[in-house]
Design a protein around this nucleic acid. Sequence first.
DNA 1: TCATATGCTACGATTTTAGTAGCGTCAATC
DNA 2: GATTGACGCTACTAAAATCGTAGCATATGA
Lengths: 110, 110
Amino acid sequence: MSPSARPVRGSTTGRPIMVLLDLIGQRWTLRILWELQPGPETFRSLQARCGDISPTVLNTRLKALREAGLVDAGDEGYRLTEDGRSLGQHLLALDAWAREWADHRPAPST
Amino acid sequence: MSPSARPVRGSTTGRPIMVLLDLIGQRWTLRILWELQPGPETFRSLQARCGDISPTVLNTRLKALREAGLVDAGDEGYRLTEDGRSLGQHLLALDAWAREWADHRPAPST
DNA sequence: TCATATGCTACGATTTTAGTAGCGTCAATC
DNA sequence: GATTGACGCTACTAAAATCGTAGCATATGA
């Protein structure tokens, strides 16, 4: 099987940034990291947090994130590794960026 | 038609970070921003830079990125807006992060 | 034994992405 | 003024990813 996991679709260069872009350029990956930031979550609670993402995808993503060393599974469920947390810092930065961004633009909402 | 464009699939909260995660959680979006960082590119040169991404997707992404105010089109082709460049700074940070990340791990390559 | 919650797989339906061909426009060349 | 080549981009089909739901196997408590 091993469908996605490592293929690095868009790039075969192996450049770390490309590997990363490939990983986080998949739906839910960043969201999962985001939801895991406050603390460990069980499979089902994580699923709920992500708006009832299908378990198929959640499991696929968790597998990839674990292989990437960003997430691991313990007694309390899934949680970020040290790497995961340091990447999470960047997500926090993006959160701040996004607020300003949403602030000063025509607001494409509705 | 207007297929994707704005739907904000994973989240209907409207929270900026969710809108952003939804946008960049699509294949090629981040890659396009990345490739646009050095300077303006024409549609076709950008396509080439992205490993011959299909024009359908490229155009869809460019449309979304323009609506998001991250990219615009000028005489020299497509280029990052000011917002696009500031987001690009975060990509540079991620690049640095990714290098270290790739550095101290079992290397899932090959 | 029964009820409940867990992590997770199966599988058909829907949506997205890929891949290729090609149109209409424009500028340079012949 | 017909041809060539590059441009931005659309059309269309096939492949792949994602969704959505059902449900299994295990564990825990009542």
